[in-house]
């Protein structure tokens, strides 16, 4: 499947993956982060159950302390 990850096209060799699997494949290891799928905020507790499928627009950003 092909998805848009932070506005860049990414290909995965599965039909669907969970948010947790995506983070693992992409090696996004930093813990403080926000994930949105097609504009929908995905809470941390749902990373194992929220699926990403072909054509989805996934946005991820890291939250750095400081302000």
């Amino acid at each position: 499947m092909k998805i848009l990850l932070n506005n860049i096209t990414e290909e995965f060799d599965k039909d669907t993956i969970t948010v947790s699997e995506m983070l693992e494949i992409k090696k996004f290891s930093f813990r403080m982060r926000i994930v949105k799928i097609n504009g929908l905020f995905i809470p941390k507790e749902k990373y194992d159950s929220a699926f990403i499928k072909d054509g989805d627009n996934v946005q991820m950003l890291y939250l750095m302390s400081g302000g």
């Binding site: 403080m32 939250l63 750095m64 400081g66 302000g67």
Partner: peptide
């Protein structure tokens, strides 16, 4: 970062449609 996450989750889930402008990375 923990407070940022809490605010983002709260606004994005309980106040849908309200634009949120976040700061991240300024050290």
């Amino acid at each position: 970062a923990e407070m940022k996450e809490m605010l983002i989750e709260t606004v994005q889930t309980l106040m849908p449609g309200i634009p949120l402008v976040v700061g991240s990375g300024l050290a």
